[in-house]
Design a protein around this nucleic acid. Structure first.
Lengths: 269, 269
DNA sequence: CGCCGCTTTGAGTCATCTCAACACTTGTGG
DNA sequence: CCACAAGTGTTGAGATGACTCAAAGCGGCG
C-alpha cells in the first residue's frame, strides 16, 4: 500500500514551527517581490474570501496587525499534521496544498486541494487539535493568524464573525460537491466533473480557465476521486483521444467544455 | 431514474412556514408529553452539542427566549428546500432527517442523516440561500432559531460564537468521514463502516448501540454510500449470513462488532 | 383483500481494479 | 554534460466485483 508519507520529506522537517521565534520578520521579504509579498490584507487576493464586502480601513488594519506573513514553504512540506494542536489559522496567498485524513483503519483519504484565498486549519476549531494533515503541493506562500488572537479579532471586528461563518459554510458546500463527485458511478464522470470544477475555480479568481496546470499527482487525484491511478490515467487519455481535452503531463487544456460537461453529467445514477 | 421527490408528499406541502403566523404557541404542546416538549434548552438533549460546557443560566434564558419550539413534523416533510431563503436554523430534538443536494446535472446526492442534537441550516450561512434540501425520515421535533435573532444572540452570548464554530467544524469532520466511506472501494467496507458510525453516534448519546433502527430507505442508504440499492441489500444479507449482524427490515442488530470492524477496515485501497 | 412501494434474490454484463511491464520526467552525482 | 536512478505516468491483459435488468417476496395502507 502506497503511503503518502513516502512522498514527503523527512517527517521531522516541519517548515513552520509557529511561535518559536524562528520566523523571519516581514521586512525580510523585501528582497523578493516587494509589491506582492508586502501586500496588505487590503490588496491581498484573499480579500474576496477573507474579508466581508465593504469592510472599512480600521478592520483591515486590525487584521493586518494580527496576521503574520511567514516564509514561503517548499514543495512537499507539512503545514500541520493530523493530531497536532492548533496554533494558527493559515490563509493560502500563493501556491496550492493538499489535505488528507488518516482513518482508524490506517488508510489515507485525500479530502481536498486548496488554492490562494483558502483558509486552512478550520478543522481544528472543534477540540483545538488538527483532524487533517495539510501538505504543500508546490512552493506556497501563507499568512498565519495565531489562534490566540482569533478571539480578540472576532470580538473587535463583528463583520469578521459573519465572514468566518460564511467561509465555513462555503467549505461545507465544497465538501458536498466532492461527495457528489464520489457518488457518481462512472470514472469519466468524476474526472470530467473535477476538471470543470477546477476550471470554474480558476475562472472565479480571474485566471485563464481553459489551461489547467495541476499541481497534484495522479495518485492524489485518484485517491481524491475514489479511483485507481490507472483509471485516472486511462480516463484522461480517453478524453484526450476524443478531442475533449489535451493532456501533457500535469498540464491539461480544456478543448471542448460543452462535451466535457456532457461527459460529466452523462452517467446518471 | 428514481427521483426522491416521488417518495415525498405533495411538494406544495411544507409543514413549517416560518413567521407567517401559522405556528402553534408553545403551550399547545402541553397536551402531549409536557416534560419532554416544554423542555428548556438547559435540559434539552441539545445541550451537549448546542451549548458550551459550563454555560451560565443567563445564557440559557437568552437562548430559550430566542428559540421557537415548532410543531412536530410528520414523516417525509420538507423542513427547507434547496434554493429557498434562509429563515431559521433548526435543531433536531427528536426524530431524524435526511439532507440531499441536487447537482447541476439533476442527480440527487444524499449528503447526510441528522439526529437529535444536530443543527440544520448552516449550509445557508453563505449567501442566505439553502444549498440542500432537508426532509424528515420520521415524525420529527425541531427547535427553530430565527436567523434575524442569530446575530443578536451571538453578540450577547460570546461563548456561543465559539460553540457555533465548533459545531461547524464538527460537521466538517463528519463530511470527511463520509468521504472516507465513499473512498473505500469495497461495498462491504462502506456498509460496515457506516453501521459502526451509526452505532458510535447512538453510543455517544447514551443509547443502546447494538440495536439500530434505521429510519432511511435502502435507496437513501445506497445513494449516501455511492452504491446501488441491490448492492446494499446484498451486502447486508451477506453480513447477516456471516453471523456479523442480524437484519430484519430496517432494524439491524450488531452481533459481532469485532468482525464488523474487520469488515470495515478490511478492503484497503 | 388487493394494490403499491420497498426489499430481496438471481443471472448476466460491463466497468473498474489488480498485476505487470514499459515510457517518461526529474534530480543527482560522476 | 551525460549517465543513472528513483519516482511518476502510461498502457495492456485478465479477474473480480458492482451494476443492470428482471422477477418474486414482503409489508403497509386504503
Amino acid at each position: 500500500m502506497l503511503k503518502y508519507w513516502n512522498m514527503l520529506v523527512d517527517p521531522s522537517i516541519v517548515a513552520h514551527k509557529p511561535f518559536t521565534g524562528d520566523r523571519m520578520p516581514t521586512t525580510a521579504y523585501a528582497s523578493e517581490a516587494l509589491t506582492q509579498l508586502k501586500v496588505s490584507c487590503a490588496s491581498c487576493g484573499l480579500s474576496d474570501l477573507c474579508l466581508p464586502r465593504g469592510v472599512d480601513k480600521v478592520t483591515l488594519e486590525q487584521l493586518d496587525d494580527a496576521v503574520d506573513r511567514i516564509d514561503p514553504l517548499p514543495r512537499s512540506t507539512s503545514i500541520f499534521r493530523q493530531g497536532e494542536p492548533l496554533f494558527a489559522l493559515y490563509a493560502v496567498r500563493a501556491g496550492s496544498v493538499r489535505s488528507t485524513h488518516v482513518g482508524a483503519d490506517g488508510n489515507e483519504q485525500v479530502l481536498g486541494f486548496h488554492y490562494p484565498g483558502d483558509l486552512l486549519g478550520l478543522d481544528a476549531l472543534d477540540g483545538n487539535v488538527h483532524q487533517v494533515t495539510i501538505d504543500t503541493l508546490e512552493r506556497t506562500h501563507l499568512c498565519a493568524l495565531p489562534i490566540n488572537t482569533l478571539d480578540n479579532v472576532l470580538e473587535s471586528v463583528p463583520p469578521l464573525r459573519r465572514q468566518l461563518l460564511r467561509i465555513m459554510s462555503r467549505n461545507h458546500a465544497q465538501d458536498h460537491h466532492h461527495l457528489e463527485l464520489m457518488g457518481r458511478k462512472a470514472a469519466t464522470s468524476r474526472v470530467a466533473g473535477w476538471l470543470l470544477s477546477v476550471s470554474k475555480r480558476l475562472h472565479a479568481h480571474g485566471y485563464e480557465s481553459d489551461q489547467l496546470s495541476l499541481s497534484m499527482s495522479r495518485s492524489d487525484l485518484g485517491n481524491y476521486l475514489g479511483l485507481a491511478i490507472e483509471t485516472v490515467s486511462r480516463t484522461l487519455s480517453r478524453l484526450q483521444a476524443d478531442g475533449i481535452i489535451e493532456v501533457s503531463g500535469r498540464s491539461v487544456t480544456l478543448l471542448d467544455k460543452q462535451r466535457l460537461t456532457e461527459a460529466a453529467d452523462g452517467d446518471c445514477s
